[in-house]
Amino acid sequence: MESPFPTRLRAARKAAGLTQQQLGINLGMDPNTASARLNQYEKGKHAPDYQTAKRLADELGVPVAYLYCDDELLSEVILIASKLNREEKSELLARLINNQESC
Rank of each mutant, 00 (worst) to 15 (best):
K43Q: 13
R86K: 14
C103E: 14
L9V: 00
C103T: 15
P63Q: 05
I97T: 09
F5S: 08
P4V: 00
E72G: 05
P63A: 02
G24P: 07
R10D: 10
M29F: 15
S35C: 06
V62D: 04
D70N: 11
E2C: 01
A12N: 12
Y66S: 04
F5H: 10
E76F: 07
P31C: 10
G24V: 03
A47H: 14
R86C: 06
L60T: 09
V77E: 12
T7F: 01
A53D: 04
P6M: 13
L18D: 03
K54L: 14
A47F: 15
S35V: 08
L84H: 06
C103R: 15
I97H: 01
L96P: 02
S102T: 13
K89R: 10
C103F: 14
L23I: 07
Q22E: 12
R55W: 13
V77P: 08
A16D: 02
G24Y: 02
L9G: 04
E91F: 07
A11M: 01
N99M: 14
R8W: 05
R55E: 15
Q20E: 13
Y68N: 03
S75Q: 02
A57M: 01
G61Y: 02
M29N: 12
A53R: 06
T52E: 14
S3L: 08
E76A: 04
R95C: 02
M1P: 02
Q40M: 13
P31G: 09
K45P: 05
N98Q: 06
G44M: 01
M1K: 04
G28L: 11
E59W: 07
P31F: 06
I78L: 13
A53M: 08
L38M: 15
I97G: 03
E87W: 03
E101A: 10
R13G: 03
L9C: 08
